[in-house]
C-alpha cells in the first residue's frame, strides 16, 4: 500500500509538473518572438533604406540612419572606450531652441560625436552641431555629417535651426581648439569672433555652457608637420606618440576617461535681439561665456582625476 502510495505520489507530482511543462512550451515561441521581431524589424529597416522610403530635412538630416547606424557605432566608443560620465543634464531644456557652447579639443573632433551621443541618449533630443566648412569639402565626411544632423557653421544655418526650436551645438574655438598642442590642454583658445552670441541674441535662445573633459588625451598632439599639412590642404598634420609611428594602429584613440558637464543656461532675454548689433555687448557676453566654460573645465578636470583610469 505504502509502495502504492509512494508510486501514486510521484505520479501526482508528475501530473502537477505536466501543466508547468506545457506552460513552458507555451512560453518558448514567445521567447523566440523578440528575435523574430528583431529580424523582421531589421528586414523592414533594410527594405526602407533600399527603397529610399525615409525622410530628410532641408539640412540633409536623416534621423532614422542616425538612430540606427551612426549613433550605435559611436555609442561603443562612448560607453566602452571613453566611459563618458555626464553632469548637469538638468540644465538642458527638453524642448525649444538653445545653443550649447562647448570647448573643442582632441586633434580629431570626436568630442562633437560624443556630445551628440550624450544628448541623444540622455536628453532624448537631436543635437545639431555647426561644423567647419572643411568637413563639407571632404568626401564621405560631408554627407555623413549632414545625415547625422550637423551643418555648416554659418549664421544663416544656425538661425534657421534655432527658429525650428532645435538644440544647436557649437565649438567657437574651431580648429584653434581642436588642433592645439598637448602642452596647452584644457586652455581655451579665442572664442572666434563672437558670432555664436550674435546668433543666440537674434534667436533669443539661452546659451548653455558645456565642458568636455577627456578629449584632450585621445590623440596627444606633440608636433605638427606643417609642410605636409599645406600639401594636403588641411589645417594641421598631427604627430602623436602613436601616429604615424604605428601606422593604422596609431589612429586608435587613447582610452581616456571622459566627463561632459552642462552648466546653467544663460538667458539672453534682458538684452533683446537689437543687442546683436552692439559689438561691445557681444564681446562682453563672449568673454563671459568663455570664462564660464574655462571655470567649468577646471572643476570637471579636478573631479575626473587621473586621465586614463
Amino acid at each position: 500500500m505504502n509502495a502504492q502510495l509512494h508510486d501514486e505520489q510521484p505520479a501526482e507530482r508528475g501530473a502537477r509538473v505536466i501543466p508547468l511543462n506545457a506552460a513552458r512550451q507555451d512560453e518558448e515561441p514567445a521567447e523566440r518572438h523578440p528575435l523574430e521581431r528583431r529580424v523582421a524589424a531589421g528586414l523592414a529597416f533594410l527594405r526602407r533604406r533600399l527603397a529610399g522610403e525615409y525622410e530628410v530635412d532641408e539640412f540633409g538630416f536623416d534621423p532614422e540612419l542616425n538612430r540606427n547606424v551612426l549613433l550605435p557605432a559611436a555609442r561603443v566608443l562612448y560607453e566602452r572606450w571613453f566611459r563618458v560620465e555626464l553632469a548637469g543634464t538638468e540644465h538642458v531644456p527638453r524642448k525649444g531652441g538653445a545653443l550649447i557652447v562647448a570647448n573643442h579639443s582632441g586633434t580629431v573632433p570626436l568630442d562633437g560625436i560624443m556630445l551628440s551621443v550624450a544628448v541623444h541618449d540622455h536628453l532624448e533630443r537631436d543635437l545639431r552641431l555647426l561644423g567647419a566648412d572643411l568637413i563639407y569639402q571632404v568626401p564621405v565626411l560631408g554627407h555623413l555629417s549632414r545625415k547625422a544632423g550637423h551643418t555648416l557653421a554659418s549664421p544663416a544655418d544656425a538661425a534657421r535651426l534655432l527658429a525650428k526650436d532645435e538644440l544647436v551645438g557649437v565649438f567657437p574655438e574651431g580648429f584653434k581648439g581642436v588642433g592645439k598642442p598637448f602642452g596647452e590642454r584644457y586652455q581655451l583658445q579665442r572664442f572666434g569672433r563672437g558670432g555664436f552670441v550674435e546668433t543666440a541674441l537674434r534667436a533669443n535662445v539661452p546659451i548653455i555652457p558645456c565642458a568636455i573633459v577627456g578629449a584632450e588625451e585621445i590623440y596627444p598632439k606633440i608636433a605638427d608637420l606643417r609642410p605636409l599639412a599645406r600639401l594636403l590642404g588641411v589645417p594641421y598634420f598631427p604627430v602623436t606618440p602613436t601616429f604615424p609611428w604605428l601606422g593604422p594602429a596609431g589612429l586608435l584613440p587613447l582610452p581616456s576617461k571622459w566627463m561632459i558637464a552642462f552648466g546653467e543656461p544663460m538667458p539672453l532675454d534682458d538684452y533683446g535681439p537689437e543687442a546683436a548689433d552692439d559689438p561691445m555687448t557681444v564681446f562682453n557676453l563672449t568673454d563671459h561665456v568663455r570664462e564660464t566654460v574655462q571655470q567649468m573645465l577646471y572643476d570637471t578636470l579636478l573631479r575626473r582625476g587621473p586621465a586614463f583610469f
Binding site: 539640412f59 563639407y136 569639402q137 555648416l152 554659418s154 544663416a156 544655418d157
Partner: peptide, 12 residues
C-alpha cells in the same frame, strides 16, 4: 559649393 549655407533665401 561646400561652403554654401544649407538653404538659400532670395537675398543671399
Amino acid at each position: 559649393s561646400p561652403m554654401d549655407p544649407a538653404v538659400f533665401a532670395e537675398r543671399d
